[in-house]
Write a protein that binds this DNA or RNA. Sequence first.
DNA 1: ATGAAGTCCGAACGAACGTTCGGTAGTTCG
DNA 2: CGAACTACCGAACGTTCGTTCGGACTTCAT
Lengths: 234, 234
Amino acid sequence: MALETAEIRPSGSPLSIRRAANGRKSGGETVDSRFDRQLARVLEHAAQIFCEKGYEGASMRDLSRASGMSLAGLYHYFASKEELLYLIQKHTFRSIIDNLRERLGASTDPEERVRIFVENHLEYFLANKEAMKVLAHEDETLKDARGAEVRAIKREYYRICFDLLEDLKKAKGLQFSGRLAVLSLFGMMNWFYTWHNPRIDANAKALADEMSGIFLYGVLPRKNGNRKAAPAKP
Amino acid sequence: MALETAEIRPSGSPLSIRRAANGRKSGGETVDSRFDRQLARVLEHAAQIFCEKGYEGASMRDLSRASGMSLAGLYHYFASKEELLYLIQKHTFRSIIDNLRERLGASTDPEERVRIFVENHLEYFLANKEAMKVLAHEDETLKDARGAEVRAIKREYYRICFDLLEDLKKAKGLQFSGRLAVLSLFGMMNWFYTWHNPRIDANAKALADEMSGIFLYGVLPRKNGNRKAAPAKP
DNA sequence: ATGAAGTCCGAACGAACGTTCGGTAGTTCG
DNA sequence: CGAACTACCGAACGTTCGTTCGGACTTCAT
């Protein structure tokens, strides 16, 4: 799945790209202008390079080579290397949240909604591995205004998860630390990128089921045997 | 807790430091030579700088400034920046494994041994925050021989955890994917460094109890009420 | 006292870094 | 046509990077 065009922020924002998307052409076939499509192409290559070598370890020359555009030409599309990282992180975060909001509409059962959260996260992770690793690994890289904005989106995402767990608590009359539960769950899910091997590991749906099972019921069985046990490894 | 001297590997190893530790002095009070003590001091500062700025983002000049030693002087103690990272990672891993092995001697109960593992990991993490973040965050940074050696120690550590879970499985007649369980548990524990706040979060022992609880029993209650529930957040 | 070994530094090396400048095609549009 | 604008590039800018070199001061066994 390709990165779409980085969305343009409301005018007046200090972080907006210098140019607005214009979807008009005399024979306009797509909504995105050529500028937007090229930017998206560059962002995709950038996500891959940042994923491979890390943000600091990746050079603009690496990116130039990967995208087939000259070093100077790249700067036609963004102002700095840091803005590149910002655009990738913002788009990825907004995009996974949008996906999630849509999926959560499908259920009102608290436990199932938690399962939907996990499944959405892992499926998006698998479908956008490079960008998601950049999101998880370069968590503290951005500073100042751009960093603050991405951190705000991250809080929004965490908050959704926190609220899902609060609903679950209320529905089942439970007591546990919501903070630790959320952060443990995110730990399980985000550590993903350090070990996932498509030749060994199951698909996103199956992994999400197993992870939800561990998070909700643990690896030990309850006394009554009705929990969904993960299948044994062959 | 300070980094001790990086241990010297058997002679003939291609990665050994160029100099062996000699504990002898006429009035010898410590086992470590001056060389060893200075190296340990530099390693400690290096861990802190790498923790703050990342390995690639940290410069030898940053390290020179932090340790109060001249840029050229640093190279008296190691051959390259990469060796620095290697020494930090190797020492930290060996050290946490040694701690663990000693603690595991205290119990033969499978469930308690898993709890000991979690407790040891989190306590070591809290006591050596900088070095442990460098270990977790710069996981893929080292290449070639040094990377292979650290990866081998990592496998050893993972293997210990995997075997603990296999013992638990056998003892309780369970079925679950050991691989996913180990990696989920490591995810919970290693994500730690991205969120731990000493002003908010409990001490290592309490956090370890809660995390073990989630991992073993999940956040949902068993039908009989005998699980150790985490206290509600005020 | 002497020499070897250990400890440390100022200055510099070439390479690589992110970014900018001036310019050249190509397209759009009155 | 020609002015305005978009898309892009070669070459260079100044800075910072990891590392090295030659030497100076200290320590210590003889």
